[in-house]
Design a binder for these strands. Structure first.
Length: 558
RNA sequence: GCGCUUGUAGCUCAAUUGGACAGAGCGCAGCCCUGCGGAGGCUGAGGCCGCGGGUUCGAAUCCCGCCAAGCGCGCCA
């Protein structure tokens, strides 16, 4: 990646300056290289001289001049300039930029891939909603974010596993089973006896009826008056049924998982017991007030946390400890990314404390909190509570707005900012949505390529000479295409997926501007036509890659 | 009360992680096709980056203090 090469050149120049005694010998920091906002400042700019100024006790502008002077020559670099108060501005050579069209075509579907991960094993765990009801809109945000990060991390060279943690062992599940059981009995003519704090949503009623019609043997057992505890198969069926609903809803957004990891399995395999024993050995467990506690205060936390209730039942926190031990130690993930909803934010710091307690580097666990989504229809706020009947499910959202717009909107906002999702607005503006703007650019290019093939009979442009690409709009488009790998790397590092939609829009704009200024298929200029067809092919490829990373369709026509 | 997150254009949000003149989309006011897709392009209006201090050559970004909003602070998950 040219950005890295430039950084290396800058560092090399600094070392050379040190060798010549122009700068005091010292550790050379990694050279920051960025795209200046003002194009007059070149394609890349570095503030390295200003970083060095203090330690070197020299004027940063002077350092910049020295660095610029000693910068080793590079075919990509056309011009190196120095600007106050100490920037080194680098302008890429137009010829080199144009030549990159060939590299992009060669990279093909792999364009944008980087080596950052180097095959490191990373797990992205996301959604992980209790299987007690349908996925709703807030979960959808985390789902879209997680699936996108997984794609980006793959592109960044990581070996990625997508996982859904199925909380099939807790008290919430038991409550859900009892509600479902009550609804089943209701469907068979008994009066409804919903547990006090039970799930009230209409979906439980619907699902109970559907479950009964799909499983006649269950119906028979219930008609015979079987109690819930006499019917372990009801629990198993209900779990499978509910997970199927969740799987279907997520599939609407193109989201799937490599592993559906069962919490119950942690108990069944004995891992839970082993991890609790390990915690105790390491001195992090204490019995008090009739319960068993994780002594997190010793690790700097505000308070201790209960592992095993006085009733003898483990908390979900306890199983989560075993779960994370399993991820890092048993399964050997180098890096784990958990995507949680805002309501789990209080769980973050104690989970980090757990890492320390288990002797693992807390930095290997990254937790992304996806903030609340407020749904509204115009001015009216739609409540998203699972406990009331009034919920907007992810399915409803997708059916109303469409999967592509849905994904794009979720991705465009940084995860740690709350967002308003106005359904009316999303529908009303669907023709003006940024996602269509990007998709339109892709379809337009596809149209041009089709036009060349079908109406002009140009079937091959492999011999097109990219050196003919000299128009500012052509080069601007290529320059933007070159930012895809940088964007992938940035997101893999920061886990900030919102850079993807922003980049997609910029790329689309660059294409539309090119389209305004340059005609691709031109009978009077066959050589230029073939060169530009190459450019279009590379641009289409890049757009398709960005859309693909976001999980959004790249249509040939709209 | 304590903790986490947020506060940027009328609205919804960015800002390459401390860089140069804070940018998009929508909305608003104008304009551009006898051309490969007008779902496009151009111009304009619109900003005390919540407020006040501090650090720095440089702050929307870091630190401190306020103000406001959301979430969390159960032997729920």
């Amino acid at each position: 990646m040219i950005k890295h090469e430039l950084a290396a050149l800058l560092e090399q120049a600094v070392r050379e300056a040190q060798a010549r005694g122009l700068l005091p010998a010292a550790q050379v920091p990694e050279a920051p290289v960025e795209h200046p906002q003002n194009p007059a400042h070149g394609d890349y700019a570095s503030s390295l001289p200003m970083k060095l100024a203090r330690a070197a006790r020299k004027n940063p502008l002077e350092i910049a001049r020295t660095v610029a002077e000693l910068l080793p020559p590079h075919p990509a670099v056309a011009r190196v300039e120095v600007a106050a108060p100490g920037f080194v501005n680098i302008r890429l050579a137009d010829g080199w930029v144009a030549a990159q069209v060939e590299s992009i075509r060669q990279a093909g579907e792999r364009f944008g891939a980087v080596e950052a991960g180097a095959g490191t094993k990373v797990q992205v765990e996301f959604v992980s909603v209790n299987p007690t009801g349908p996925i709703h809109v807030g979960h959808g945000r985390g789902a879209v974010l997680g699936s996108t990060l997984a794609r980006v991390l793959e592109a960044a060279g990581y070996t990625v596993q997508r996982e859904y943690y199925v909380n099939d062992a807790g008290s919430q599940m038991e409550l859900y089973y009892r509600c479902l059981y009550a609804r089943c009995r209701e469907a068979l003519g008994h009066p409804l006896e919903l547990p006090a704090d039970g799930y009230r949503g209409q979906y439980v009623k619907e699902w109970a009826e559907r479950l009964l019609s799909e499983q006649p043997e269950l119906r028979l057992r219930l008609q015979a008056g079987a109690a819930l505890d006499e019917m372990p198969e009801l629990r198993a069926s209900a779990l499978r049924f509910t997970l199927d609903r969740i799987r279907e809803d997520l599939a609407l957004l193109g989201i799937g998982f490599d592993e559906w990891f069962s919490e119950q399995g942690l108990y069944d395999s004995g891992l839970y017991d082993r991890v609790m024993a390990l915690l105790r050995e390491r001195g992090h467990v204490q019995e008090k007030e009739g319960a068993r506690w994780f002594v997190s205060t010793a690790l700097g936390e505000d308070k201790d946390n209960v592992l095993v209730r006085s009733s003898g039942l483990p908390t979900y926190f306890a199983s989560d400890i075993a779960y994370h031990y399993d991820k890092f130690v048993a399964r050997g993930f180098d890096r784990v990314i958990d995507i949680w909803g805002a309501d789990h934010q209080g769980h973050v710091s104690r989970m980090k404390a757990v890492m320390t307690a288990l002797g693992l580097d807390p930095a290997r666990l990254q937790i992304v909190i996806s903030q609340l989504v407020t749904l509204r229809r115009g001015a009216a706020i739609v409540r998203v509570s699972k406990r009331t009947g009034d919920i907007i499910t992810l399915r409803e959202l997708v059916e109303e707005v469409g999967p592509d717009a849905c994904r794009f909107f979720f991705l465009a906002r940084s995860a740690d900012a709350q967002m308003d999702f106005d359904l009316e607005l999303a529908k009303r503006e669907s023709q003006e949505n940024p996602v269509y703007y990007v998709q339109y650019a892709h379809a337009r290019i596809a149209g041009i390529l089709e036009h060349a093939r079908r109406e002009k009979g140009i079937t091959s442009w492999d011999d097109g000479a990219v050196s003919l690409l000299t128009h500012p709009a052509e080069l601007a488009l290529v320059r933007l295409m070159l930012q895809l790998p940088e964007t992938v790397e940035l997101i893999a590092r920061t886990l900030e997926a919102q850079h993807l939609p922003r980049y997609a829009q910029e790329l689309a704009t660059a294409f539309h501007l090119f389209y305004r200024d340059c005609r691709v298929v031109d009978d009077a200029a066959p050589d230029l036509t073939r060169a530009r067809l190459k450019l279009m092919e590379a641009a289409r490829l890049t757009l398709a890659r960005v859309l693909g990373l976001m999980g959004i369709a790249a249509p040939e026509q709209m």
